[in-house]
């Protein structure tokens, strides 16, 4: 790592990665460290509050947002979030949610520090020594990353930099059906949408022989993987950091 500037970042691991896919967080730490970051983790962090906010439970979302602010206000480092959707929550919803309880500058101080993981990685130098052999993976871009953060290419771009060949699914702009607690309150509809996505995945599996489904939003991935496993299909589903840390290759 000679020649790289060390930069200090805070990690916002997100509740889903923390609770059900810790290896994605561990891999993200490794991927960041390999690219010259010193990673800090504030253990006061819990959840950005998006699940409550998107369900209309604004008071609960606000309480979680305030905890988020307290967890990170002790430093001025960039906050790298392991979810496009959670990053979008902070950027888009916090200014509205917190405007009566925090000053505009206090909100701006937090909001301006949020960076989604692949956006961060895209702006840092790629690791040397990409794959010799091209590995093909399918990429799923979450809706909030696409439409709220407008980070349409960062995930695919960092994968390509590390030597992966990235295949997009047909009707890629269609939601996978996760939608936070929508996945729990409307399982039948949510799953019908997952099945459409999984059918599109099946096509690229057959056509291009992709070896994994990769994404940067744990919610979508849990939903799609959970559906495939229920149907007896244990196709590999990976959080993007798991493909980007040198040790994992």
């Amino acid at each position: 790592m000679s020649g790289r500037e060390i930069s200090d970042v805070e990690l916002f691991v997100t509740c889903l990665v923390d609770l059900v896919r810790p290896q994605a967080g561990i891999a993200a730490v490794a991927a960041l460290e390999e690219r010259g970051c010193r990673v800090h983790f504030s253990d006061q962090q819990t959840c950005c509050g998006q699940f409550a906010y998107n369900a209309g439970h604004v008071d609960q979302a606000r309480a979680m947002a305030l905890n988020f602010v307290q967890a990170f206000e002790g430093s001025t480092r960039p906050i790298v979030a392991l979810s496009g959707s959670c990053a979008a929550m902070v950027v888009e919803a916090y200014p509205k949610l917190l405007k009566d309880v925090l000053s505009e500058t206090a909100i701006e101080r937090i909001v301006s520090r949020i960076v989604e993981l692949t956006q961060w990685l895209q702006s840092s130098d790629p690791l040397e020594g990409a794959h010799e052999e091209r590995i093909r993976v399918a990429y799923h871009l979450g809706c909030h990353m696409r439409r709220l953060l407008r980070a349409e290419d960062s995930g695919q771009e960092v994968l390509r930099q590390q030597g992966y060949e990235v295949v997009e699914l047909g009707d890629a702009d269609q939601c996978c059906g996760f939608g936070g607690t929508f996945s729990m309150s409307e399982p039948e509809l949510s799953t019908a949408m997952a099945d459409a996505k999984i059918a599109a995945l099946k096509e690229v599996r057959q056509q291009y022989g992709v070896t994994a489904l990769v994404g940067a939003d744990m919610g979508c991935l849990l939903h799609l993987a959970g559906r495939m496993i229920r149907n007896g299909d244990d196709f590999d589903v990976k959080y993007i950091s798991e493909l980007l840390a040198g040790g994992s290759r």
């Binding site: 609770l19 810790p22 967080g25 729990m184 039948e188 799953t191 997952a194 993987a225 959970g226």
Partner: peptide
């Protein structure tokens, strides 16, 4: 429970990230 009607869910692992 709505989730588990149609999908599997991984268990909380022995060690969370934190």
């Amino acid at each position: 429970g709505g989730w588990l009607k149609t999908r599997d869910m991984p268990l909380i692992p022995p060690e969370t990230f934190r």
